[in-house]
Amino acid sequence: MRVTVWGCRGSLPSPGPEKNLFGGNTSCVQVMHNNTCIVLDGGSGIQRLGATLHQDIKEVHILLTHLHLDHTMGLGFFLPLYNPSVKIHIWGPAAIEESLLRRLRRYFSPPLFPVRLNELPLHPIIHEIDNSEFMIDDIKIQSGYICHPGPTLGYRLSFGNAKFAYMPDHEIGLGAANFPNEPDWTSGYEIARDVDLLFHDAQYRPSEYVDKVGWGHSSIDDTLAFAKMCKVKKLELFHHDPGHTDIQLQSILHEVMLNKQLDFEVSMCAEGNVYDIS
């Protein structure tokens, strides 16, 4: 599986010269395996992905973690949606009352967006999922609800022994009892356990999180403890706060890693990064 990052910023696109290194586009990650194209979230990063997608690809699966704007705002600008020869599937979390299609239509309608879903040349195929397990070609997908306001899924993608987990918005501080000592009482554990690569919410410094409990995001030290508990091989800190510049992100990573002995790799995720998991 080849994983490409098209956006790893949290909450709001925030481009600018002081953010060139880690990028300003919001959540969008592409996973390719042969001709299978899976796109995790439709944040602003999906626009560039759509503009450069290889013309041989005739089917795209967009897996939405949830419907917050920073994960959906790019959908209408994803060019393959306007190409009748490309079949688009949109997978996303079931809610209690309103269907996924109805919730998506709120975005694809005025005044938020001029084009309605049924005005597209080919209506996307909508799949509502919850704690689910299914295949997209050769890739096994497991989804599970995790702790974040509104119905929100984490995803685990595997092919053979290669495993990748994606949880851009996840507040471990609220979603775990007796953390980090009881994996079975920790939100997201089944999604992330033993993966080769984990992309995980790390929006706040520990000191910033104190004032933002309940907003749905994690403090970096909780994310490190979670990755350790899940025995991941590599952790990419994801969903960077829109206010954090490149210099700040580098110094935050330096601060939290000081005097820590970890048996897995940790980096700040950057737009444009590519990972091969095999």
Partner: peptide, 9 residues
């Protein structure tokens, strides 16, 4: 196995 998020919360 991991408890469902509703039970954890």
């Amino acid at each position: 196995p991991q408890q469902p998020i509703e039970i954890i919360l």
